[in-house]
Design a protein around this nucleic acid. Structure first.
Lengths: 183, 183
DNA sequence: ATAACTATACCGTCTGGACGGTATAGTTAA
DNA sequence: TTAACTATACCGTCCAGACGGTATAGTTAT
């Protein structure tokens, strides 16, 4: 055997998490290589060892999102309360791994990152399909846009001190709205 | 008399429009001073003659938005079809002056521009008020989020060759959805 | 057993380019 | 004459990425 098994790459995950956090809390502009390295407690050189370019770092982040998204689509299809209700609930910011990955990717889409945009389009299509199966094709768009609007507002809520306001109160009325659309 | 009247500032409006277009079509990152000047057919010096800084340029753009927004809120309040239906209709991308100013400002909010974020929050509050008067406070949020979702999707449709897809078809189903929420 | 070697996991510094902004000297049109 | 420009050179800062070096841990030949 030529290969050996030296130290574990602890920095790798730390870098990815730091990148995600910076995107969410301060936006794409703030997520520079230096800032990411600093927050991850890693040197810039160390960062670039694991991710040869910023683009590579983004790729891995989007890959991670894809996995979480696939699992969520499955859960949505099997949700007992129906796809639409599940979708609205899961559109509320809850600081889950999916939420974080999604909003982070949103920051990239905002600055016109091609791959991020493509993944969003794909996700939207899958969601719309499931929603149509639940509330019919006519109302599916209405529900989809409601969920998107929720994320749009999460986008406007910035910073580590971001309010993440009374979304809990919104949930009831939104679910009630979905109920009316279904009938 | 016949006081000497100097030339009209033709470049000023051209610069603002170019800035707006670049924000909409290519995002904030692409809207550099050089790029704006180039698109406006103006020298960089000429641009900085009218707008001493980029921040000043942004300010004027947001001012323009505020004026258009105020007029739209008035129209929404007086709309015979009701505030909610008007709101949904006006949330569809139609390449109006308001739409352009709004999406351009969205690009700034995306990169956490403080003033842009504040103006959005204010606009949202006014809209929510009017919507509550039309469909009730419980359903108002649902309608608001639908409109926001529409803009969220406009945001994802990028580039000069951006599709601006079958939104017309969406309108019917969304208005139908609003009808159900009102009852 | 240990010296020599190898592969991985980092660190710190430097470079080249882009961007916001300044400065300045000249040109055009009302 | 004066405001409204054009054209160009330049500065300081920030950023992505390159590069060379170091540290650690396992492997192999002796």
């Amino acid at each position: 055997m030529m290969g050996t098994m030296p130290r574990k790459p602890v920095a790798r995950e730390a870098v990815l998490d730091a990148f995600e956090s910076l995107l969410i809390e301060e936006g794409e502009r703030a997520a520079t290589l230096d800032a990411v390295a600093r927050r991850a407690g890693v040197s810039k050189g160390g960062l670039l060892y694991h991710f040869p370019s910023k683009e590579a770092m983004i790729s891995v982040l989007l890959e991670r999102l894809d996995g979480l998204l696939a699992a969520d689509v499955k859960a949505m299809a099997d949700a007992p309360e129906g796809a639409a209700a599940y979708f609205i609930k899961s559109s509320l910011w809850a600081d889950t791994r999916l939420d974080r990955a999604f909003v982070a990717a949103t920051r990239l889409a905002e600055v016109a990152h091609e791959e991020a945009l493509r993944r969003f389009a794909a996700a939207q299509a899958r969601w719309l399909e499931l929603l149509a199966g639940d509330v019919g094709p006519a109302m599916a768009k209405a529900v989809l846009y409601m969920g998107d609007g929720l994320y749009f507002n999460a986008m406007l809520a910035r910073g580590p001190g971001g309010p993440l306001p009374e979304v809990g109160a919104d949930l009831e009325s939104l679910l009630a709205a979905v109920g009316r659309l279904r009938s």
